[in-house]
Every structure is written in C-alpha cells, then in structure tokens.
Design a protein around this nucleic acid. Structure first.
Length: 487
RNA sequence: GGUACCGUGGCCGAGUGGCUAGGCAAAGCUCUGCAAAAGCUUCUACAACAGUUCGAAUCUGUUCGGUACCUCCA
C-alpha cells in the first residue's frame, strides 16, 4: 500500500513527505473562530477541511492531539491602539455581558460543526482562560528585547525582530514593500514601527473586559493567544499548524515571530492553509456581507438559493474541491453534489446484497491503492472521490451481472468503502427512513400497491404513488420490488 | 500602487511534459402497465497569441480577464 503521506507546507512552498516529530504522535493546532457573530459557511469549510485531515491522520494510526482555540477576547477592531475589543463592542450594541456574546456564538459554532459531522478537537482552549500564559509570554518577549511598552500597551518590535530573523518567511513578502506600502492609520504615533503589533493593550476604565497585568489593566492582543496556547498544549515545537489562508500574512506571521522571540523556535513544522470559499467569484466574508449562514443553506431561505441543501450535501460539495483551491459556491453546483452523494451512498448500501462469484473481474486492491495514493498526496479528496466513484460504477455493474466479485473481495470492498466514506471523509446517511414504525408502515403500503399492480388495478397503484409523492415520499420501482425515499 | 494566485468541455471541479479524473447536465439504451427512480454507454475541454520541445492544459514570454492579500476576517 502506498502509505507515504505528503503535505504541502506554506512555509517551504512545497509538498513534502510528512514526518512527525515523535513517531506515531501528531500535534496539530488550528486557529479557531472569533466568537462574536454566527459562524458562516466559509468558516465551516476550513474546519471541515481540517476535520478530514484529522480523520485521515487517525485512520493512518497516528495518535493525534488536535487543539483548536476559541478566540473570546483580544480581537481588535482595525488593530489600532485605541481599538476596541470586538466582544466589548458587540456587547454594548446588544446590551449584554461580553461573555454572553461569547457563549451564544460558541454554542452556535459547535452546533454548526456538529451538523457537518466534524469530530470535536482534543482540546478547545479559550483566550480568556489563558491570560496568565499570555502575560508570561509577553514578559519573556520583553526581556528578550523584542517588545516595548508605551503607556501600558506592549508592542512587538517588528523592525528589531526582522534584523535577527526573517519576519516575512511565511508570507514571502518583501519587508521593505510592507514598510512602505502599509497604510497610514490614524492614531498610530505610539508605535515605533508601522508593522509593530500589540501583545497587550491598555484599556480605558469603562472597558468591560480587562485583566490585571504588570503594565496595568488591559487585555491581550490577538496573536499572542495562539502562541501561548499552542506552546502550552503542544510544546514549543509541534507538527502541524493550520488555519485559513487569510491568516498567513498577519496572524500566522506574527505568531511565528512571537514564538521565535520568546522560545527561539519555530512553532510548527508544517503550516497548512485552506483556501477561501467564494460566492459568485467573490470571497465570502463577514465584512463583505455576502456570507451564508448554515441555517439559511439548510432551509434554502436565501436569495441565491432555489432550495435547501443538507449538511452532508454541502460537506460532499466541499470535498469535491481540494482544500487549497478556492471553491465557488452556487446553486447548481450544490444540486450536482446532492445527486452525486446519493449515488455514492446508494452504492455502499447495496454492496451487502451483491451476488458473489468464485473470482472478481476487477481489482479491489487497485481501487484501494488509488484512493490511498490520492489522500496521501496532500489530502486530495476530489481524486479520492473520483476513485470511489470508479468503485461505485463497478458495484452497480456487479449488481447488473456485468461484473463479478468474489466473496472475499466483496467484504474487503464493503469495509473499505465504508471506512473511507464515513470515517475518513466524514459523510453519513441522512434522512434515513427513520423509525421502525415508519418502515413497517411503508412496507404495508408498498405491499398493498404491489397487490394492486398484480391485479392490474393501476388506478389504485397510481393513486398510492401520487399521494405518497404529495407528502414527500417517493416510490421507486425496481426489479426486486419497490423501495421508498423520504425527500 | 505593490505582492501573490488563477483562467479547464453546458455547469462544478482534478490534473505540472506524452497514458488526457470524477460529479452534475445532455443524448442513446436497459428495466417498466405508464411514469418516475435507478443502472450502463456516449460526449474529449484546457483564455488569446508567440516560443521551447519529437511531443504542452502542463514549461517560457506577452496580452486580456478574474480573485486574494497589503486593514478585522477561516
């Protein structure tokens, strides 16, 4: 079996063989959401992508510690000195406590991810729960000479850091260009350098969220939380650090700078970044106001949608594109995904009923190695799916008597298809017939209809078919009798 | 303005030098009381121009078009 996993590393800009620091164990940190509003579909794509990565690493037999934080403090509006904490701002608008905002949107985030069938991370730490660690790290960066204080606010000294280290290694930008092209912002006089960013921010007395620190009352900067929490739970050096591509130039660049300034080590060996979801060619984002909420998608209650799509349809749709490509979100593409997913799941359903032969007319090991080769090539889910669909075609052909399958191969194929589809890709059956009572009821109705058909009482059989259709149950006539689907 | 990336058949999307995914749609067929559903088969594309090469969607150059980042964002 082709079991050499390769991963694209943003830092080196190439795909290379993955080797964990400690054999058999993997530490993975993924930047989680800032919980000040509802999670939208673009957010979901990132976490679904990392969910597949997490699941595949588990499938390969690694023991994985997957840490994904919740940013519940310290995220500035506009990254300015007098910037206001996002939570405090939203709290004022809605007349509630900041932590009430945090709670509300954390629950929403979890609910969304649950619907998309993602596995929970091993640890989900919050920024507010790690103020002490962030203060400690800030102190160390100051004592190492890479940060300075101005009126109770601590800034990271990018210019000084960049003389010792390559500040733009991850983003691959030209530092001089950044210095000259960064926009002038109002009220930036406090900072020594334009690129300097805050590690700790002094608050005004009326601020709602603040903590005591050696520099007075304040709250932590955005970037320091991930450095502090990844160091705490995964060590100063770990295997994989992930997030959305939009985090590369600022957040992750600063995170690396902080770790180097504090621990003198690169935090992660492999930097993995997922691409954006676009809507009609434009990035989906909160600030552009073109974001879809999962609930709108499931219900179809959105101007751009003809109908609702189930979470698994959306998950399948996302898996049909590679995680590093932008994916355009549109109605007809979802329609296609819905049917494709049904075809895949149906084939898996019928494997068990296939008739077996003494030998197989095709190679099950070949299918398996094709799928593994795809997943090992930087988690290439679209190619893996393509090979699963090869198997789907063969399964259907066996069902038609056009191909043969041995008993041993049948069981191997069945186990494999289920393992990849359900456990690695994280898809599942939805809308399954439901309760036993419904099953029993439907069997009775189908039997009655079959009886009517044998008596050539087509008026009755058509009536049953049409009435069921009206309440959203479709009868499918097949060779072996009728079956039904709840639409 | 600077820096990246992208432009694939009706649609979505893989694919970094020859073997030319896959899904959906469409057409044909099978099944069938009719229909639906389902299944099988078929459909050979790579923005334009020029170049490198025995050979290019894939490499180079130019042009056109698009997107992202440089400001919070997954």
């Amino acid at each position: 079996m082709n079991s050499v996993l390769k991963i694209y590393n943003t830092l080196s800009r190439e795909t290379s063989v993955f080797e964990p620091i400690h054999k058999g164990y993997i530490g993975m940190y993924v930047c989680g959401p800032t919980v000040y509003s509802n999670a939208h579909l673009g957010n979901a794509r990132t976490y679904i992508s990392f969910d597949v990565i997490f699941r595949y690493l588990l499938h390969l037999g690694y023991k994985v510690r997957y840490v994904r934080n919740i940013t519940d403090a310290g995220h500035l509006e506009g990254d300015r000195d007098e910037g206001e904490d996002k939570f405090a701002k939203k709290a004022k608008l809605e007349q509630v406590e900041p932590m009430e905002i945090v709670q509300k949107y954390t629950l929403d985030f979890h609910e969304v991810l649950r619907q998309f069938n993602t596995l929970p991370p091993s640890i989900e730490p919050t920024a507010t729960g790690h103020i002490i660690e962030q203060i400690e790290m800030t102190k160390k960066i100051i004592s190492n000479g890479f940060a300075y204080e101005v009126n109770g606010t601590i800034y990271f000294d990018v210019e000084k850091f960049s003389k010792a280290q390559n500040y733009t290694a991850l983003s691959n930008r030209n530092l001089d260009d950044l210095l000259t092209n960064t926009r002038e912002l109002d009220g930036q006089d406090e900072k020594k350098g334009r690129l300097d960013f805050a590690l700790w921010i002094k608050t005004k007395p009326e601020h709602l969220m603040k903590w005591e620190s050696p520099w007075g009352e304040g709250f932590p900067g955005w970037h320091i939380e991930c450095s502090a929490m990844s160091s705490k739970y995964l060590g100063h050096e770990f295997d994989i650090h992930g997030g959305g591509m939009d985090l590369v130039p600022t957040h992750h660049t600063n995170e690396i700078a902080q770790n180097l300034a504090c621990h003198k080590t690169q935090p992660a060996r492999y930097w993995v970044h997922t691409n954006m979801l676009t809507v009609n060619g434009q990035k989906m984002s909160k600030s552009l106001g073109n974001s879809f909420l999962p609930a709108e998608l499931f219900s179809g209650n959105h101007a751009l949608l003809d109908k609702g799509y189930s979470p698994m349809t959306v998950r399948f749709f996302m898996l049909q594109a590679h995680y590093r490509s932008t994916l355009d979100f549109r109605n007809d593409a979802l329609q296609a995904a819905e049917k494709g997913l049904a075809r895949l799941l149906n084939a898996i359903k019928i494997i068990g009923q296939l008739k077996t032969d003494v030998s197989s007319s095709f190679s099950v090991p070949e299918i398996k190695s094709n799928v593994y080769a795809a997943l090992n090539e930087d988690f290439n889910t679209p190619i893996a799916l393509a090979h699963l669909f090869d198997a789907v075609r063969l399964i259907n052909s066996v069902n038609d008597g056009k191909e043969q399958l041995s008993a041993a191969d049948k069981s191997e194929l069945s186990i494999f298809m289920q393992e990849i589809t359900f456990n690695v890709l994280g898809l599942k059956h939805e809308n399954d017939a439901g309760t036993e009572k419904v099953e029993g009821l439907m069997k009775m109705i189908i039997d009655m209809r079959a009886d009517a058909k044998t008596k050539k009482d087509f008026a009755t059989s058509d009536f049953i078919r049409d009435q069921l259709k009206k309440i959203g149950i479709e009868i499918k006539d097949g060779k072996e009798g009728a079956s039904f689907t709840i639409l």
